[in-house]
Design a protein around this nucleic acid. Structure first.
Length: 566
DNA sequence: CGGACAAGCTGA
DNA sequence: CAGCTTGTCCGG
């Protein structure tokens, strides 16, 4: 008879972020690290994961039941690292690496086939790391090159893109070229070690037993960060997974954030040619009686409609509901904060920016007029205006749209850029909504949205690619950079701003909210600095993430206090 | 998290 | 002092 065995179990009760040991009964001898089990926990029957082996001691209860496979044993260290890195219970990350439904048997991964055909010879070697690419650079060649460079029996290349739809398309094209791929919805395949796993951010926790390498497409896209707590980022997870596996990773970006710049990056060929042609329509001088589309935007729309592209015109309207822009009704100058340049709002007759650098009465800094107009319309209003202006029926696409309209003119929020694949021209009806959004990342997101629009219209190299930007800030560096498709100045600027404001990579922040947040924040003390208030949350700053996390882990977090790492 | 149990509060 | 609420502790 075998010696008795015990295992350490973390339960689904995330609030109890601590393992407990159980005996492995003889019937469950096959139970491995990572597996899903049912255990009796404080007189409750709960599900959990075996996270390691344990010493046999007295008074241990036995595992109740083997439920199925979970993440492979080789992933336990990255899951533990993630829970420490994002100050969250381990169970959250065990869930991220586990199937939605229990899996009790695994397929066998296909054996690696020889790489046949010219395409594999043509692929030049691509050095790992951060690569600046143009919006119209096809990531397929990079993925193929990464696959060629890393493929090994029993190891998997993980590929992450910003959206499921993009992953599905990429995956289909990889399959066409003879690569065996697993999708995000095929947990069993990833767990069995399929050669390539493709998915959206969740694929960062693909349960592959061995990581051969990783490709992160559009690494600066917001959607690679989990929107809910814990706010883990696919790039951080994969970078660490690869580091631990001594495996290479590649990350592409249209515009390297300061964080990625600090890692060092190279530029992939002719970036400029892959950006769309950008035409700026400065509405400051415009006739206030102009419709939604002014001058060149209107003629470009008519030209596009006389062409044969199925979707001729996409009008991008900044997302609904939040933040209205104030403008002078006399001279059209925007109301902006003199300190930070962000858009000002008017609340109870007081005009100020979100950070309240200056609180003032309503008057135009340019002409002194006190008459204002609100520059903000919903998508439906925009649609009616467009129909009148273009004498065309216009469809609407928002995040909640289920089937795409069949009209040749489409207006939508940012969701439209993910849903419509091709168009002759994209018009951003009010670019200032992006430029002046009350976010530190507003300027780079403004560039980003033009890049994503450029994917619908194609590149200036191909003699296509018209993105038309209506703005009252024609002399802004962001706008000029887009027109020239030349971003070096902007990148330097962003890097220096990050340094000055101690944003990543020059600092790390966490926001603390909830009952007891103030005393908790205060108790953290050196070397962290605390600012903020009850309403907006207390902001804790540190030199870097490690310092921040180490300091926060030394003080027990009171219940009901929520911590968000920026 | 959720059960167990203790201490505190209330009203007849 | 029963009956209820609120708080604290703890799980293998």
């Amino acid at each position: 008879m075998d010696a008795p065995r015990a295992v350490r179990v973390v339960t689904e009760v995330a609030a109890v972020d601590r393992p407990f040991d159980y005996l492995v009964p003889e019937g469950l001898a096959k139970t491995g690290v990572g597996d899903r089990v049912r255990v009796d926990f404080n007189n409750r029957s709960v599900r959990g994961w075996v996270v390691s082996d344990a010493h046999v001691s007295e008074n241990l209860k036995s595992l109740g039941k083997w439920l199925g496979y979970g993440p492979p044993a080789s992933m336990m260290d990255i899951l533990l690292w993630s829970s420490e890195r994002w100050l969250a219970p381990l169970a959250r990350f065990l869930v991220a690496a586990s199937p939605r439904q229990l899996v009790t048997s695994l397929p066998t991964a296909p054996a690696l086939r020889a790489l046949e055909g010219d395409q594999w010879q043509r692929l030049s070697d691509q050095a790992p790391g951060v690569i600046q690419v143009s919006p119209n650079t096809d990531p397929l060649d990079l993925v193929l090159a990464a696959y060629r460079a890393t493929r090994a029996d029993g190891a998997s290349l993980i590929v992450v893109t910003p959206t499921e739809a993009w992953s599905r398309r990429l995956r289909g094209r990889l399959e066409q070229r003879g690569c065996a791929t697993a999708g995000a919805d095929e947990w069993e395949r990833a767990r069995a070690g399929w050669p390539i796993v493709v998915g959206a951010r969740g694929a960062a926790f693909a349960p592959v037993p061995r990581v051969a390498g990783a490709v992160i497409v559009d690494a600066d896209d917001e959607s690679l960060r989990s929107p809910a707590q814990p706010t883990w980022h696919a790039l951080d997870v994969l970078e660490e997974r690869c580091r631990r596996a001594s495996a290479p990773w590649w990350a592409t970006t249209m515009l390297p954030s300061p964080r990625l710049m600090a890692k060092g990056y190279r530029v992939d060929g002719d970036i400029r040619g892959g950006w769309p042609r950008v035409t700026v329509i400065d509405r400051r001088g415009g006739d206030p009686h102009d419709g939604l589309l002014a001058g060149e935007a209107l003629s470009a729309a008519h030209r596009a409609l006389s062409g044969d592209e199925a979707v001729a015109v996409v009008v991008l309207h900044h997302r609904l509901g939040r933040g209205r822009l104030l403008a002078c009704a006399a001279c059209h100058e925007l109301y902006r904060c003199a300190v930070c340049g962000q858009a000002e709002q008017e609340v109870d007759d007081v005009v100020s920016c979100a950070s309240e650098h200056e609180r003032r009465r309503r008057f135009c800094r340019a002409c002194g007029s006190t008459r204002v107009k609100l520059l903000r319309q919903g998508v439906s209003t925009v649609r009616r205006d467009l129909e009148a202006q273009l004498s065309q029926s216009v469809g609407e696409v928002t995040a909640s749209t289920e089937t795409l309209p069949s009209t040749r003119v489409v207006v939508g929020t940012e969701a439209v850029l993910q849903r419509v694949r091709r168009a002759s021209v994209v018009i951003i009806d009010d670019f200032d909504q992006y430029l002046l959004a009350p976010r530190e990342t507003a300027r780079r997101q403004a560039v980003d949205v033009v890049g994503r629009a450029g994917r619908l219209v194609g590149s200036r190299r191909a003699g296509r690619g018209d993105v038309i930007v209506q703005t009252r800030r024609g002399d802004d560096l962001v706008v000029r950079s887009l027109v020239d498709a030349s971003f070096d100045r902007l990148l330097d600027d962003e890097f220096e701003t990050a340094r000055a404001l101690r944003l990543a990579p020059f600092g790390a922040r966490a926001t603390i909210r909830g009952a007891g947040a103030q005393s908790y924040a205060a108790s953290l003390g050196d070397p962290l600095t605390v600012s903020g208030d009850e309403v907006h949350g207390f902001v804790v700053r540190a030199r870097d993430v490690n310092q921040l996390v180490d300091a926060m882990r030394t003080v027990a977090k009171p219940p009901h206090v929520r911590v968000a790492l920026d």
